[in-house]
Computed example of a mutant assay.
Amino acid sequence: MKMTSIKMKQLLDDRFENSDWRTSFNRDKDTYRVEWQDTHQGVSITIPNVIAKYEQNGDKAIEELHYHVEEALKMMHKTQNLTGKEQQIYPVIRSTSFPKKTKSGINLVYSEHTAETRIYYALDLDNTYQLIDQQMLDKEGWTSEKLKEISMFNVRSLSTEPKIDHVAGNDFYFIATKDGYDASRILNETFLEEMRTNAKGELAIAVPHQDVLILVDVQNDMGYDILAQMTMQYFAEGRVPITSLSFLYEDKHLEPIFILAKNKPTTKNESKKDE
């Protein structure tokens, strides 16, 4: 029997039953929220995404969701300091539709990246992480420039050893360590430049969700088609989706591209010219 939003809501109600938490279901937005009774800080869950994972992985998907939500809620009840934890600060990639403020109305610290993506900053807490907001910066007396510099230094220290797959004459490279910062490696310019230098064709890059970075040495049009299908699938399955679009990397610049089946992609700027 097909899982509906109402049935999933009932399943989540049972799983997140806790006297300290309050749960709610927004039928219009198809989201489920778990928050602390006292502070109203919490986590919002997109029901269709959970259903897709549940249909693929069964109860394991709900167990993983419960674990991540519980860790996030625990973190919200702790006061975090940045000083002394500089090595635990990393940039994280999010879509441009991602909120710019916390649920409490505090501005999150972020930097612009591409037309599809934005850079936020996170304090790593082993099993989870906390996005850094302006209040945390002010308390430490830090500037956003200092935060960005520290995080970019740290992201360059992360492993960039990809798994390689050769498909239809194209070379696909995957980084999926599941350390929470796989997509963040798109900010390691030295790594991207090395990949571009060694590419036989054009270098295309995708960050469909937080836990994967895909790079492709595209040597024929089939490579674009495969990348488009792959990116869409990863985007649909990701716990933290980012974008289903890919990027061409040239001259240290990322340009979002629309990939048309059996055709070379057009960039956003080219598509606007055609209108």
Rank of each mutant, 00 (worst) to 15 (best):
M195I: 14
M232R: 08
P256K: 10
L192C: 06
I150A: 02
L260H: 12
V218C: 14
A206H: 02
T231K: 01
D251C: 11
R118C: 13
L123C: 05
L131E: 07
L248C: 09
A199W: 02
L203V: 08
L125I: 06
N198V: 07
Y249W: 04
S184Y: 09
Q210W: 03
K178N: 10
D211L: 02
L131S: 07
E250A: 12
N198R: 10
T243C: 13
N198E: 15
G201H: 09
I214A: 01
A206P: 00
L123K: 10
W142N: 07
G238F: 13
K200D: 11
M230K: 04
Y249Q: 07
D171W: 04
D221I: 13
D211A: 03
T197Q: 15
G223F: 02
T117Y: 03
M195F: 03
N170I: 08
G223Y: 00
I132M: 03
T177M: 04
G141V: 12
E237K: 01
R118P: 06
Y181C: 12
L125Q: 13
F235I: 00
K146E: 13
H166N: 15
D171M: 12
Y181H: 08
M230H: 00
L203I: 10
H209W: 02
M136N: 02
L192W: 05
Y173S: 12
A122N: 10
S159P: 00
K262E: 15
G238S: 14
D211V: 02
T117N: 03
A183D: 14
Y120Q: 09
L187C: 14
Q130P: 05
H166K: 13
A122Q: 04
S157F: 04
Y181R: 05
Q233V: 01
I226L: 12
L125T: 01
T117G: 08
L203S: 01
G169R: 12
T243G: 02
S184T: 07
E189N: 09
R118V: 15
V240L: 13
V240C: 11
K262D: 14
M222V: 13
G141D: 04
V218P: 09
Y121N: 02
L245E: 14
D179S: 12
S157G: 08
M136I: 06
I132S: 02
G169M: 12
K139D: 04
F172G: 09
E193V: 10
K139L: 05
I259T: 10
T243V: 08
D251S: 15
F172T: 14
L227R: 01
E161W: 05
Q210P: 11
G223L: 11
E255V: 08
I175A: 08
V218L: 15
A115N: 02
V207E: 04
Q130V: 00
I214S: 02
I226N: 01
Q233D: 07
I205T: 01
L123A: 05
T243W: 10
A183S: 15
K178V: 08
T160D: 08
Y181I: 07
I242W: 10
E255K: 15
L158G: 07
S144W: 01
H166S: 11
T143K: 06
S184H: 02
